[in-house]
Amino acid sequence: MKEKVKVCEVGPRDGLQMAHDIMPTELKSRWIAAMAQAGVTEIEVGSFVPAKLVPQMADTDAIVRSALEQPGLRVMALVPNLRGAQAAYAAGAHGVGVPVSVSEGHSRSNTRKGTAEQVEEVARIVEWVRAQERPMAIEPGCATAFGCAIDGEIALDKVVRTAVALAEAGVDAVALADTVGYGNPAQVRALVRAVRSEIGGKLTKLHLHDTMGLGLANALAGLEEGIRSFDSALAGLGGCPFAPGASGNIVTDDLVFMLESMGFDTGIDLDRLIASRELLHEGVPNEPMFGQVSRAGIPKTYRVQA
């Protein structure tokens, strides 16, 4: 059997939060459904943040409830604090991501808290969720782990300390995030090894951006180090409103092509996934759509691996 790799689509959150247009709720729900029906099993559908700060996310409660209707879909949401986690829980989300920036400058810009304060916020979320009747996964990401547009270089040992603090807070999983896309493959290998040596299997995922054109190369480096879960965005949309210069995520369609061509099993129908780009373009017609596979077409040699 092929080894499985999970591709988590973050376009409805990370992609749309930077869009100039606001995608209508009904169309957003149809787009999410189309990706789920193409075989995407995990989607970060929105974020529970103040609408005045990120108006594109104002309908996240309705989007979570709609996405829950898709059979087999793990519905995730991003939350910055306990209040957001409580809103996600009330809407029925299966899990939440929580940004914990290793960079002090980015942390205060993004959450108005320092790194240690945000770790404490995660601990409060864990305590509250564990007291509820229904489980909800808590999967924070170490943001700006590979560099920051505000603070510059981030020391490896600070990333490790942040990941350890999150693991000790009782979270279900930890991700490493290249929030501004400054990382390189050697850095990915070194950081994955260092963090895993301290928290083991709680390190599960990489969240990568393609600012410097190294997104897929970094994904491959992570793959070679044993990472089997990656965030990506259809058509490469995305960025961070609180990180100057951050560009889009790695392209979901291109990532799926690479993984499946190498013999991994994503469970995603690439033809149907690419077709879902039409709904995305309809919803945000002024956003550039990236992706090599969608431009060139799926080659006849695709999926030749046993």
Rank of each mutant, 00 (worst) to 15 (best):
A246S: 15
G226V: 08
G92C: 12
V96G: 06
Q292S: 11
P135S: 03
L166V: 05
K4D: 08
F264C: 05
G297R: 09
V45E: 05
L237C: 12
M258N: 09
A91K: 09
F264M: 06
D269F: 00
L279E: 04
Q305H: 13
P285S: 10
Y302N: 04
I22V: 13
S261T: 11
G283C: 05
A165F: 04
A190Y: 04
L280S: 04
A137S: 14
P285M: 10
G39Y: 05
Q17D: 08
R295H: 13
H281Q: 15
K202V: 06
A88S: 12
S247R: 13
A219D: 00
I32D: 02
N184G: 14
V180L: 04
L16N: 03
G97H: 02
P24G: 10
L279S: 09
N286F: 07
G297I: 06
L53N: 11
R65D: 02
V7P: 00
G170C: 12
I138P: 01
T266S: 01
G170S: 08
L255A: 03
D61F: 05
L27I: 09
A91S: 15
Q37V: 09
T25D: 03
V304L: 15
E139W: 04
A123Y: 01
D269K: 02
F264I: 02
S101M: 08
F230N: 01
L206W: 04
A235C: 15
V171T: 03
E9G: 04
V159T: 01
S66V: 05
V10I: 13
A186D: 15
N184E: 14
R134Q: 11
R193G: 06
T266N: 07
L234G: 01
F48N: 03
V5R: 01
S107T: 07
I154K: 02
E120V: 00
V5S: 07
K300F: 14
E278K: 15
G283Q: 07
Y89P: 06
R228T: 02
E127Q: 15
D59M: 02
S29F: 09
K2L: 14
M18S: 10
E198V: 11
R74C: 10
K52G: 10
V79W: 09
Q292V: 12
R161A: 15
L68P: 08
L259K: 05
I125E: 06
R193D: 12
R196Y: 08
A233C: 13
A167Y: 07
H20N: 14
K6D: 12
G226D: 09
T266W: 01
G297F: 05
E139V: 12
V256I: 13
D254R: 07
D254G: 12
E153Y: 11
A149L: 13
A306N: 14
V45T: 00
L214E: 10
L203D: 03
R130M: 13
G84H: 07
S276K: 09
K2C: 11
V49G: 10
L53S: 12
T252D: 03
A173P: 04
A145T: 06
A67V: 12
V126G: 03
I227E: 05
E225C: 11
K28T: 03
K300A: 13
